[in-house]
């Protein structure tokens, strides 16, 4: 192996991190505010909701699936969790007779409902054999409807202080959503790299026949993958409602697409079997830096969208070239 090839391999492996570093360097020159601690924490906090969703979506995409329902699941979890987390003295409570509940109740509601939606996705994919795109397109539509039905189309507002802490609090000067994002990333990384479940996800996405022939229970693992992704969408719903002090049925529209974008920019292949959690985290951060940077530079929101789209496609084109060269 010569030096040139080493460099190529290095870029193939760490290119996405370099992109982030280069973006940060460029931004710090263009805007004096960018590198301030406040702004950097702000960037990470802004991406933490999308980031948490993208962790689950990464597992789904590695298994050669897709999850379009995350945004809707986020909304359903947000309104349901919020309805059990409203402040006791608030006049327009959804359940007026309900006393103020400890924060663990809305947390469990969000996680439980998210997991349940994920289970429906997983069962549809594993048992009926319909493409994940269709299965989760169905739940994407219906679950949004459920959120509207449950909240009667109205926001569920004024949450308890401990609920709001999830989205607005700080621990040692670090925003709670940021802590949650990195903790969940670490846990998901361990699941993916150090458990049998994780190995099975790669095997199912990489070669489903080989997985089956080697005795992997493909169906059960698929259900688990979508349940995990649903649960993380629930966490995202909790975080977002806590931050805004309201659960709204119209929340999180198109978040699934941003999460898929983050995962994809991070090098997870839609042909299955390839992808990492660190990639998803970096992908989410790249989207965040891009957003923040363009905002600081005063670039119009319209241009921001155009640029974001171009970056997603470019990332995949580069990634595919990298993989094609291996052959």
């Amino acid at each position: 192996m010569n030096g040139k090839e080493n460099i190529k391999q290095f870029f193939g492996k760490y290119g996405i991190y370099l992109v982030l570093v280069v973006m940060v360097i460029i931004m710090s020159f263009l805007s004096p505010v960018f590198l301030s601690q406040d702004n950097l924490l702000n960037v990470v906090r802004q991406v933490s909701v999308i980031g948490v969703i993208s962790l689950g979506v990464t597992l789904v995409i590695i298994s050669k699936g897709i999850d379009l329902s995350s945004g809707s699941t986020l909304a359903l979890c947000a309104v349901m969790a919020a309805s059990f987390g409203q402040a006791g003295d608030w006049a327009a409570k959804m359940y007026p007779s309900l006393p103020e509940l400890p924060v663990i109740v809305p947390i469990l509601v969000a996680l439980g409902v998210g997991t349940l939606v994920g289970m429906v996705n997983g069962l549809l994919v594993a048992k009926t054999g319909i493409p994940a795109f269709i299965a989760t397109l169905g739940t994407y539509v219906s679950v949004r409807g459920l959120a509207l039905l449950y909240s009667d189309g109205r926001p569920v507002s004024t949450l308890t202080a401990s609920y709001q802490f999830i989205g607005q609090g700080y621990v040692f000067g670090v925003p709670v959503p940021v802590i949650l994002f990195f903790m969940l990333a670490l846990i998901t990384w361990v699941v993916l790299n150090h458990t049998k479940f994780g190995k099975n996800i790669y095997a199912i996405g990489g070669n489903i026949v080989a997985a089956e022939v080697s005795g992997v229970n493909v169906g059960r693992n698929l259900v688990k993958i979508y349940m995990y992704a649903g649960m993380l969408a629930g966490v995202a719903g909790l975080m977002l409602s806590a931050r805004l002090n309201t659960g709204q049925p119209g929340m999180g529209v198109a978040y699934e697409l941003d999460a898929i974008a983050a995962t994809t920019i991070g090098g997870t292949s839609h042909s299955g079997g390839i992808g990492t959690i660190q990639g998803a985290v970096v992908g989410a951060l790249i989207l965040g830096v891009l957003n923040n940077g363009l905002n600081l530079l005063g670039v119009s929101a319209y241009w921001q969208q155009i640029i974001k789209g171009a970056i997603i496609v470019t990332a995949v084109v580069i990634d595919m070239r990298k993989n094609a060269k291996k052959k």
């Binding site: 049998k196 095997a203 997985a211 005795g215």
Partner: peptide, 30 residues
């Protein structure tokens, strides 16, 4: 099998032990 059935982007050892990965005793970790 006549047609090879590896999981291409995983390591040799992960392919060999696919579906029966050894766990660290008392933990869920491989």
């Amino acid at each position: 099998h006549q047609e090879l059935s590896p999981v291409p982007h995983r390591s040799v050892m992960e392919n060999v032990w696919l579906g029966r990965e050894p766990l660290i005793k008392g933990t869920p970790f491989v």
